[in-house]
Design a protein around this nucleic acid. Structure first.
Lengths: 243, 243
DNA sequence: CGCACCTTTGAATGAGATCAAAGATGGTGG
DNA sequence: CCACCATCTTTGATCTCATTCAAAGGTGCG
């Protein structure tokens, strides 16, 4: 396969030393392909691995006692998934492939070894985890305290902003392989109401759609309506020296 | 002050080596007292330190453009706060003291040094951060996908469960220094509606209240209604050896 | 071509918000 | 020690945003 996915991800933030790069390469022996709709980590099954996303979209979700589903977060190229495995024996969330996806698995023992040998990478992974926590908090505020329209707008802003960083949002246009039901499960709304809200956003000239293609027309207004805050990139000034 | 707060916290999960304990003691030179209502970390001000809570209640919150507030999480004795500082230059959340509180500050550079010298502590701190992320996700599901009554129940279950671990919930009774407005801001409801829901829980014999005293009478039913999942303690099996 | 699944639209319902105001509580200063 | 004021809780009435229920178009895939 050639080269660690995690290395690729982390090198967005720091210039990896050759030692770090070698250690990261040793982490992964393989990659695995998943079909659209496949369950990568199930709330019921015992998980064994963490993953880095090489290709594709996924999401993590929880299904509640009443049968409804909450999507916590979408995962794109370079994202670390399965981190809860570090804290809990049983996975608290289900991870599902939204599109066909390729993942790079590695065990937590290997991660432990990596953190021991390369403290800077340990600190960086901690920073990335914290950043994801903050992003979840933003989502929480959006769902807890804003209107349906703002929630949908916020989700679009977040996805658009993250895909743009990956170079997947040429001129505001992104591929959005989600059903309105998915968007509802991510925003705490019903599919029917998501439909009405998106329709409204189109009418007001904020976005445009056809099929799974979505284009952000007026990012400023969209983000403002959503109270969306695009968090600036992760801080790296405090990290220990590389090894 | 004598002894690091963080050491106390981490020793809940692992038996600290003498080297680890010494390093943790070196982390903190002081502790700081805050008055009820004091803002410890402000969304606007530049923060300098992380903290461990020695004594008291705090919460982190965000104020949105429309003026409403979302409380993300309550922080009790032993909790790490200010972690977002590891990822972002400006604090994304405001941390406020709910009661008079004593905090132990330390800089992120010191944390970086600690992680370098003591990889097991680095891994443990990562695991704790992940656990907090999962807890936020649970809250997100509660707010996004359950009724007002279930949200209030869930918050009570969470607080009760966490305080019990700290030995602060004798026979289901906890001190709850929150206004109904606070509870509303944590659950995404209005204070008025929180009142009605709590009243209902009392009527149905699930809880009892007078003043700031709250007693959980039927934990099983309360948690069931709330779809509350008490996450079992943090995994430590995968951690690297101590140093 | 035909069957799933998804989107769209309409009408009725309902959970929670909003508005308003009356009690309760507690901290503060005289 | 008491009176007062601010804050918090409680309750009622009304309103509104989002849900629910239902059914008619689209779309793509096997």
């Amino acid at each position: 396969m050639g080269g660690s996915c995690l290395a690729e991800r982390l090198s967005h933030y720091v210039t990896l030393s050759s030692g770090e790069r070698a250690a990261l390469d040793r982490l992964e022996e393989q990659d695995r392909a998943y079909r659209r709709g496949a369950v990568v980590i199930s709330e019921s099954g015992a998980p064994r691995d963490l993953f880095v996303v090489r290709k594709g979209w996924l999401h993590s979700s929880v299904v509640l006692g009443n049968g409804s589903r909450q999507i916590m977060r979408f995962h794109f190229q370079g994202d670390l998934i399965g981190l809860p495995l570090l804290a809990f024996p049983d996975p608290p969330e289900t991870v599902t492939a939204v599109t066909d996806a390729t993942l790079c698995p590695f065990s937590r023992e290997r991660l432990a070894a990596l953190m021991t040998e390369h403290p800077r990478l340990a600190a960086l992974i901690l920073a990335l985890t914290v950043a994801e926590r903050v992003s979840l908090a933003d989502r929480l505020a959006s769902i807890g305290r804003t209107s349906a329209r703002a929630r949908v707008s916020s989700l679009i802003c977040e996805i658009h902003s993250r895909l743009r960083i990956l170079g997947l949002a040429a001129d505001g246009a992104v591929q959005l392989p989600l059903t309105q039901e998915d968007i509802g499960d991510a925003t705490g709304l019903t599919a029917v109401h998501v439909n009405r809200m998106m329709r409204g956003l189109v009418e007001d000239g904020l976005i445009d759609r056809n099929g799974s293609h979505l284009r952000v027309l007026d990012e400023g207004r969209l983000c403002a309506e959503a109270s969306f805050i695009d968090r600036t990139p992760v801080e790296t000034g405090w990290l220990p020296p590389p090894r």
